[in-house]
Amino acid sequence: MPESLAEIAADFRDSSPQERLQLLLEFSDELPPLPERYAGHLDQLEQVHECQSPLFLVVEVGASPGVAPDDQRVDLFFSAPPEAPTTRGFAGILHEGLDGRTVAEVLGTPDDAPMSFALAEVVSPLRLRGMVAMLSRIKRQTALKSAASATPDAPASTPDASSASRG
């Protein structure tokens, strides 16, 4: 698991159940809004149907020259309504832990990473399935877009790929 995500997991595990809910609320509050190029364009994002509330996400994979595909930067964007704070909190954790990491780090994140936050007992295992589903879609989009950008002649997999400017 990327160190940034592992640190968050440790913070959760070291907290009392009530503190864990507060921590999740902080991640919910701090989830960044969509940048202008996505705001109002949810059709360019993928809906995670396993979440109990509407959650949309999109992954951008960098295309910096001279950087190996596995080392390209991954950026994550989420949209979830304020009345779905649990879903927003899950998204906030994944954003904080995985945004700006490399393709290799994102793809190397274990599928069961959402189980390492000791959240099952405070939000119920049923609700946690939404976070598992988010992670699997992040990894799937990362793999697809990384493969697409590694093949120069291949068309961009989504309309947004070309608009992303990465340094």
Binding site: L21, Q22, L24, Q52, S53, P85
Partner: peptide, 22 residues
């Protein structure tokens, strides 16, 4: 609520949470 964290985002004054699942 359906969302277990909604109470924490703000609630009616003096209210307490009762979660259906937990």
């Amino acid at each position: 609520d359906e969302d277990v964290l909604l109470y924490e985002t703000g609630h009616i004054p003096t209210s307490l949470k009762l979660d259906w699942h937990q």
